[in-house]
């Protein structure tokens, strides 16, 4: 601490140590701040069509893969998830079902990024699925899927945390009708 440079160095070095403690405290405080998010997804209609698809995108001949097209209704109030360490929310609707060969399947139907508290109340009608709803076995017959809304809190500093709403009732997929263009 004798010379000018030495004192400048000491101030900067200690401030780095201190800001790490501060950021650590912020990161841990985010885990204990209470929140009461709510959300629900419902499927208004499900239509199954057949089309071309293969795991390696080389099967151009057959149209025997079944695609499910859904119309969704999403209601959610996620504004309580915005605390001082929330940078943004990643919100996604997930369909979950089990088949005899694969006990647990999860498919993301729709997603969005919420950056501000003022737009954290979601009320959407008539949403089509953003991503293809395809089962590994290529068939939707005899499958019951439930849907739920999941969210991922992206913090400024600290831990990514996840949450989800209660799963909806199971929806049965109808038989294929029509061909996907």
């Amino acid at each position: 601490m004798n010379s000018l440079q030495n004192r400048a160095n000491a101030v900067m070095a200690f401030s780095i140590s201190a800001i790490f403690c501060l950021l650590g405290a912020i990161a841990f405080s985010a885990l204990i701040i209470p929140s009461n998010p709510s959300g629900a997804v419902a499927l208004d209609s499900i239509k199954v069509v057949t089309g071309r698809y293969d795991r390696n995108w080389v099967d151009y001949k057959t149209r025997n893969n079944e695609f499910a097209n859904t119309v969704m209704r999403i209601d959610a109030d996620l504004s309580s998830l915005f605390h001082w360490n929330t940078k943004q929310l990643f919100v996604y609707a997930v369909a979950e079902y089990s088949t005899p060969t694969h006990p647990k399947n999860q498919i993301v139907l729709w997603d969005t990024i919420i950056k501000r508290k003022s737009v954290a109340v979601i009320s959407k009608r008539g949403l089509n699925n953003k991503y293809s709803l395809i089962d590994v076995n290529k068939k939707w017959t005899d499958i019951n899927a439930n849907v739920s809304l999941h969210w991922n809190i992206v913090p400024y500093v600290g831990f990514m945390t996840y949450g989800h709403s209660k799963a909806s009732e199971g929806y049965a997929f109808p038989l294929p009708s029509g061909i996907q263009t």
């Binding site: 800001i19 501060l22 405290a25 912020i26 001082w84 500093v157």
Partner: peptide, 17 residues
């Protein structure tokens, strides 16, 4: 640092902190 944490926590504003 302590004041920054407390004020930020109360105001829920990390920028202020």
């Amino acid at each position: 640092g302590v004041i920054a944490f407390l004020v930020g926590l109360i105001a829920q504003d990390i920028r202020l902190s």
